[in-house]
Design a protein around this nucleic acid. Structure first.
Length: 728
DNA sequence: ATTTTCGAGATTTTT
DNA sequence: TCTCGAAAAT
């Protein structure tokens, strides 16, 4: 095996096979290459069986890419042994273990939408008023308040709350109120009833099994000779438990990350664990191979404004490159049109130079809706584009409906039933649905069973209902005899779903269903040897977010910054860079200082995606939209003078107005934070000031952030109420 | 009791 | 663009 084109530091990382190794890898420092080469090195040089290496990536796409790279290095066809996301790993793990341990055979995985439906039901049952935001708030806390010991025993011990959990309930009542506790329990029992796990539960459950069954734990610890994890700065503390547990036996844990690129704290990621980790070998990769020095300088000058960070300056020996261009538009249309023009200019063939390809461009935005005006402009200017996961493939209505039919066929799944019982319309409305639920409760059966019983009685023996039951039954007869793709094809015709879309002339939806059937065929081809069941397919598919089609076309790519993580493009436009959008007002309002730093890291990630040239665009917005005035983001101001030039009609006074506007925004967000006791203000490692004790460092926050243990420079450790502290 | 239709309103980020 | 809700129509 040849280790080509790696510098000394990277080589050292590749060969650091034993013990605990931490790689702090800056943006564009080639960490994916290092990971792939290390994997190949372990297999080819050291002679490890790939079945004994666990390589955890952040997304499925990254896993796919990693497999590809490794195959290329080793010159092999397939390399899919345990190169996957933590979530996929948990699914594999649970599938292999839980049935033997006395749990039901099949669990199902719920996405955010399904969870929302469950929560809404709980609200309705308990007659608690709800709005979109209260449901969201509830779910947010719900997933935070669950932990392994709480949720999972209820899977084995059904329906009632165990004694030791009573005080947990009491704690919840004290913490979040009576209603919350009721909702919590109700939703939990629903999950238990369907053996439905959400993304977090997959991890909770895995940890629970590892803790409760030492022999299982040992088996897996023996199996995993090497554990390597990518994007560690974005892992939650629970994910840490998993890979620390799994690597405990052999002690070979290889973690790679960059604290400056942590953009998932809002989802519970905990970068401190990575920062304070004590490895045997510590390697910093800070040479950037991706961007020009101009772009890198800009990125460095932005991230320097963050206070909570390990200082690390990326450098490059590459050339200076083009200056960064900032464009200020009067409104979103002007901004979008400017982007179109630039792309047209750069793609045009020049006399001696080839023009850039459309696929060399990426448009990055903070929120997906910001692509809209740009899309319109592209359509007008005939620039080909794709939106990466605008509405993600598996979240489309028609796809979810099709899959729900499959779920209903696979088992008596009430969640799926509710989704599709009236699609296409069978005159099963709200009230009929309630009747069905009631009957199901009395009979102690599933809703589908209940409907079957009810269809014997008058009023419920409508043709539409009988046809529905007939359709499901006849397809169920075919389970095991037909391939999954054929089953789907069959049910879609039989249920009338296809006819419905055809009648409504929803061509695109039909095409998407066709695409789904194709993707199932691919899946079946990939898993020919192993005898896949419908349940297994549904579990696997739940973790996929994007269908990877249409990726090699010559198109401009539009995506959110979060989706751009780990990618690189020659030309990058960061659009919609207005104060309030980026940094995002809502996020800052919710999590204050923490969020502001995260927004800045987000900006850092966006900037470092660019290889050759970076464009920053922003506009004053429509005055129509509630009279919002928009000003250039503070992140543009944070770029060192001379690195960027401004185009577009812009008064110089805008800059000073922007500063005032930023200050107002800060004040607004700050004020709201004081009002809500919910938010934790300080975190481990924060430098804080206290009027009486002076300066100190936070050791930990507790009581939901209300109090902090602070190590004061001149007074030692004290516990202090958080609102008496200020961040330095 | 259900379905359709039409208009208003909102929109962070994701495994 | 898409989703949700209210009111009208079946």
């Amino acid at each position: 095996m040849k280790l080509e084109g790696l510098n000394d530091r990277q080589l050292e990382a590749v060969k650091a096979t034993e013990g605990k190794v931490r790689i702090i890898a800056g943006a564009g420092s080639g960490k994916t290459r290092v990971l792939a080469y290390r994997y190949a090195y372990l297999v080819d040089e050291v002679g490890i069986d790939p079945a004994n290496i666990l390589c955890l990536t952040f997304t499925n796409k990254a896993a796919q890419e990693m497999r590809g790279r490794i195959c290329r290095i080793l010159g092999i066809e397939q390399a899919n042994d345990f190169i996957c996301t933590v979530h996929s790993f948990c699914v594999k793990f649970l599938r292999e273990e839980i049935f033997r341990l006395g749990y039901p055979k099949n669990f199902q995985i719920l996405d955010a939408e399904d969870m929302k439906a469950l929560a809404k039901e709980s609200f309705t049952e308990l007659k608690i008023d709800r709005t979109e935001s209260t449901v969201e708030q509830f779910l947010h806390n719900f997933s935070k308040d669950k932990f392994p010991g709480w949720y999972l025993p209820s899977v084995i011990v059904p329906t009632e709350i165990k004694a030791e959990q009573i005080q947990e309930v009491q704690r919840l009542i004290n913490l979040r109120g009576d209603n919350y506790a009721k909702l919590f329990i109700s939703t939990l029992l629903k999950q238990k009833k369907y053996f439905a796990l959400d993304f977090n539960d997959l991890i909770y459950f895995t940890i629970h099994i590892l803790n409760e069954f030492p022999e299982v734990c040992q088996k897996w610890q023996m199996r995993m000779n090497y554990v390597m994890v990518d994007e560690v700065q974005d892992c939650t503390s629970l994910e840490w438990v998993i890979y620390q547990t799994l690597s405990a036996k052999h002690g070979n844990l290889f973690i790679v990350g960059d604290p400056d690129q942590n953009i998932y704290e809002w989802r519970g990621a905990d970068p401190t664990a990575f920062v304070v980790y004590k490895p045997d070998t510590d390697i910093i990769l800070d040479q950037n191979y991706r961007s020009t020095s101009t772009i890198l300088d800009a990125a460095n000058s932005i991230i320097d404004y963050n206070t909570l960070r390990i200082k690390k300056n990326l450098y490059t020996v590459g050339e200076k490159g083009d200056v960064i261009t900032h464009f200020h538009g009067k409104d979103e249309k002007e901004e979008a049109d400017w982007i179109s023009q630039q792309i047209k200019k750069l793609t045009k063939k020049k006399l001696f130079k080839k023009g850039a390809a459309y696929s060399d461009f990426a448009i990055l935005v903070r929120a997906s809706y910001l692509t809209r005006s740009i899309e319109q402009s592209f359509l007008k200017n005939e620039i080909p584009y794709v939106i990466w996961g605008g509405v993600r493939f598996f979240e489309r209505k028609e796809i979810k409906d099709s899959l729900s039919y499959l779920r209903l066929i696979a088992g008596d799944d009430d969640i799926a039933f509710k989704r599709i019982a009236n699609v296409p319309s069978r005159k099963i409305g709200e009230s009929t649905m309630e009747k069905i639920a009631e009957t199901a409760k009395i009979q102690g059966c599933s809703m589908y069973e209940a409907l079957k019983i009810m269809s014997q009685t008058k009023g419920y023996n409508k043709d539409s209902i009988l046809q529905f039951i007939e359709a499901i039954e006849s397809v169920r007869d075919c389970v095991g005899k037909m391939s999954i793709s054929d089953l789907l094809d069959y049910i879609i015709r039989k249920s009338g779903l296809m006819e419905m879309y055809r009648r409504d002339e929803e061509e695109e939806r039909l095409e998407n269903i066709g695409e789904l059937i194709n993707s199932i065929k691919t899946y079946e081809a990939d898993h020919k040897e192993d005898d896949i069941t419908l349940d297994q397919y549904l579990q696997d598919i739940a973790l996929y977010t994007n269908a990877d089609y249409a990726k090699d076309k010559d198109q401009v790519k539009m995506m959110t910054i979060h989706q751009a993580k780990g990618l690189e493009f020659p030309y990058v436009f960061i659009a919609g860079l207005s104060e309030g959008i980026m940094p995002n007002k809502r996020s800052v309002r919710e999590r204050k200082h923490k969020a502001m730093e995260e927004e800045r890291r987000l900006m850092y990630v966006a900037v470092t995606r660019a290889e050759q040239k970076l464009f920053l665009t922003e506009s004053e917005g429509y005055s129509m939209q509630g009279g919002f005035e928009k000003y250039p983001s503070r992140f543009i101001r944070e770029i060192k003078q001379g690195l960027f030039v401004t185009e577009g009609k812009m008064d110089q006074s805008i800059w000073s107005k922007a500063i005032t506007f930023s200050k107002d925004l800060d004040k607004e967000c700050e004020l709201n934070i004081c009002d809500s006791p919910e938010g934790q203000l300080f975190f481990e490692g924060n430098k804080v000031h206290h009027n009486h004790f002076g300066d100190g460092t936070v050791i930990k926050a507790y009581d939901n952030g209300e109090f902090c243990e602070v190590d004061f420079e001149s007074f030692g450790v004290r516990a202090i109420k958080s609102d008496k502290l200020s961040l330095l």
